[in-house]
Amino acid sequence: MILTPETLEKIETTIPKYPVKRSAVMTLLHFIQSEQGYISNEAVEWVAEKLEIQPINVLEVVTFFPYYRQEKLGKVHVRVCRTLSCALMGAYKLSDDLVKQLDCKMGHTKEDGSVTLEYAECLAACGTGPVVLVDEDLFEKLNQPGTVEPMVEVIKTRAQSEAAASE
């Protein structure tokens, strides 16, 4: 498996931070997923060897957590909070709007790999709901006029520029 030198360096400095190597499994998976977009079988084996555990020990972590993916995520990852406070503020209407505007089914990745659109459970920003997490950026109060369009714009621009960058 080929990882960039930066990721390899991050991995090497992370492992000794923990008293027991195995504890670094989540952090390594984070690094690898952010570089490769998902956790391949090859990555599972690579991490297992690195931490001197069995591949199944890595795989059981990968399959438990919603964040880790075994299939490539879209270039832009859009998560709409659906839990009660956001729902009260219109999260379901918002999600229907996004399905249309992004032309992407809920819980799916677009065929061209540009966008993944999903529900998320409470994002700890309930006072400013409904909220959406676009990659690492939180968009809030999305029931106010004029708030959704700029976010959709960000998503589309990012999807395009990422697509261009990876060509």
Binding site: S23, M26, N57, F64
Partner: peptide
């Protein structure tokens, strides 16, 4: 050490958190 979770509510429960920090489910 700052350790990041991966989207599971149960990691807020203290013993679930500890298991997770050890690298387990």
């Amino acid at each position: 050490v700052v350790h990041r979770g991966a989207g599971a509510y149960i990691c807020g429960e203290e013993t679930g958190l500890i298991e997770s920090l050890e690298g387990n489910r």
